[in-house]
Amino acid sequence: MSRFFFPHLVLVSVLVAPASNAATEPQPAKKGPSTEVPVVIQPGTATKPAEGFQAPSLTYQTQQSGTPLNASNSFNRLLKTARRHQAPTDDGIHDPDNDGTKILQPPLEAYANLPRTASDLGNGVDWVKAMDEHIISPRWDIDDPEMQPLVMDMNIIRFPRGSIPNELFPHRQHTLWLDCSNCHPAIFIPQKGANQISMAANLLGQKCGTCHGKVSFPLSECKRCHSQPKVLPGREGVKP
């Protein structure tokens, strides 16, 4: 349903712009249908504007065309994630009438000191960086706050077909959070070449998609996995 929200923004701009024009332009005193002609600036007539002249805003085009902006032809009609990080009372899945909902923490309050990602996709938080910089220290054991994870620093590089940049899988970032048994052997067989991984499987929530696209950074952050520029045969020295 959130696809309806972008039209709101468009409408807000439509609502605001005519009001500001109205505030600055002298209005005719007469009532009834207006007969005034919208100001049109001809291209190429670069004259100095008169005193107190307000340049017409872009909304004039909408007014001239005679049709209001139409929800069925809105920009980015199928984009689904327009609003992020809403407080529980506004997020659409919590019941705002529930007393408990009001005392739950809003996500942005928790993210205040955490490093954010440029894309703001997913939680918009760089969780590994937050851990590396000791801004958060998630417990490795339910009772013992001192217990440390068994970190394995081993990178695996995979070579996807075509010009897709090679994919680097860092074990270190994953073993900061997870136990070996979380992935091996049920999701990934711990053997070179034994795993058939595809983006299609990921999209369906298998393989990497078990976490990425649900809680870890989403699949739309392509370059965080496909991070190694590929040198194509015959195109050495060509920058990607």
Binding site: S2, R83, R84, D91, I93, P107, N123, K214
Partner: peptide, 14 residues
């Protein structure tokens, strides 16, 4: 639009 739109914008991973 407001009447139609049920805002579903929960936090990622909820």
């Amino acid at each position: 639009l407001l009447a139609f739109a049920g805002p579903a914008s929960a936090e990622y991973g909820d």
